[in-house]
Design a protein around this nucleic acid. Structure first.
Length: 262
DNA sequence: AGGACGCCCTGTTCGC
DNA sequence: TGCGAACAGGGCGTCC
């Protein structure tokens, strides 16, 4: 589930818990989550350093160490973080445990080991090498319109394509399309300029609202789709039953009355 | 280019 | 009740 809002909440969590503490151990429980590095290299680079700054691009979280190397984390479908005291309290499914002095720890938890973790000396370069599109909260209206003009296919697939726009996943694409009254299968080239401008505004509104709600769907306004996005769920607007289709191999929930494919 | 699919991985939910 | 199948989610690779 971790999409841009979740990752931004994790970034702030690290900022408020884990900065400026000497790292005295790095334990990799599941080496398969490492991307182009090894447990030994991770330990060598991180031991005796401290976290300096954090940043985020799309669904990727970057943490700068005091030696100017960066740790990056991606959370796959089930990843999260937990900061705690006392190693005996290590959560289940901890795949990476970063231990600070005085028995404080930061756990990277991922029941489904689909996330990945690695090192880079430049987040900017890393984003380029991995062909990530612009962070979707940073993109201007003009650039958004320009990107749309180069795109065909369904609007939902476009929003979720990390090479096109970085940060939106399945859950929040549904929410953004609901707020924009757009059917998930509407083609990008069929969208009017005014629909695109509205879509661009709604991306920021929805994602920022989610961040303010700690990326907890239960804390979102009941006028949002997500609290109702389940079997038997009803549209908070017209009260009609929500529908379920596959778009790009993903489950898309939408309101067939409020989001018409025309 | 983009859609359809399978795969990764595992806890949870569904169907018989 | 109990079992296995299907599903969820993000990303990547392959085929068309």
């Amino acid at each position: 589930m971790p999409e841009l809002p979740d990752v931004e909440v994790y970034r702030r969590y690290i900022d408020s818990t884990s900065m400026q503490q000497r790292i005295d151990n790095v334990h990799v429980e599941s080496p398969s989550i490492l991307h182009e590095t090894t447990p030994q290299a991770l330990g060598r680079v991180m031991n005796n350093e401290v976290f300096h700054t954090t940043s985020r691009h799309g669904k990727y979280l970057f943490v700068e160490l005091s030696n100017e190397q960066w740790l990056f984390m991606h959370f796959g479908m089930s990843g999260k973080l937990k900061y705690f005291k006392g190693q005996s309290h290590t959560p289940d499914y901890t795949r990476l445990l970063i231990s600070f002095v005085d028995d404080y720890h930061l756990a990277y938890i991922a029941p489904r080991k689909l996330g990945r973790i690695g090192l880079t000396d430049s987040p900017k370069q890393w984003v380029e090498n991995n062909k990530l599109g612009p962070d979707v909260l940073e993109i201007s209206e003009d650039d958004f319109l320009n990107l749309a003009s180069q795109r065909r296919g369904s609007v939902k697939s476009w929003l979720m394509d990390q090479e096109a726009l970085a940060g939106i996943g399945n859950i929040y694409s549904d929410e953004i399309l609901f707020k924009s009254h757009l059917h998930p299968k509407r083609t990008v080239n069929s969208l009017t300029e005014s629909e695109l401008k509205q879509l661009h505004k709604n991306i920021s509104k929805v994602l920022n609202t989610a961040i303010d709600a700690d990326a907890d769907p239960g804390k979102l306004p009941s006028s949002y789709l997500l609290p109702h996005r389940d079997k038997g769920g009803r549209c908070p607007g017209c009260k009609g039953e929500l529908a379920l289709i596959k778009v790009g191999g993903r489950t898309a929930w939408y309101c067939p009355s409020c989001q018409v494919n025309s």
